[in-house]
Amino acid sequence: MPTPASGLPTSELDAFTAILGRMISILNGKLSSTQRQKLAGAMPSIQWEFPDVDTKLCLAAGPDALCVAAPLDQPPFVVRMQRSTLEDAAFARRSLGAAFLAGRIHVRGMNPLRLREFIMLVDPLLESYREAYLECSAAPSAPVS
């Protein structure tokens, strides 16, 4: 769970957590059963870490649905980036490819031979984040970073 140690107001952390939660719900609707099964087979859990806001989201992939699990101390697969990196990609200001080149995304523990399953998740996840952000903030325009 987010803590004030991140330096962000608690309300902002709560808002970010709420967006992530809503993102998972939306994402479930975007992935087919086959895609979920492939993801569950390749990487049963992915821990997304946002160190700038001291937030960890453990995404557990089951054959029926993706759900949020308790963050792990030693997760097998971690994707770490700043919240702004996620938001820049979600709102097409800067692609994840460019962020990866610039060293703004750190991936640990992924079996590179299962990259396909991870890539399959990326676009729906970014779309889901964007939709969740707009819903939660009730703002008509994209956030300014």
Binding site: S95, G97, A98, L101, L115, R116, I119
Partner: peptide
Amino acid sequence: DEHRSGYPCRPFLDTVVGDDDII
């Protein structure tokens, strides 16, 4: 498998190498 599936990782590779980056 990547070939049989129509190169699903290719768009990501294209994004990485073809992006308008600082380098």
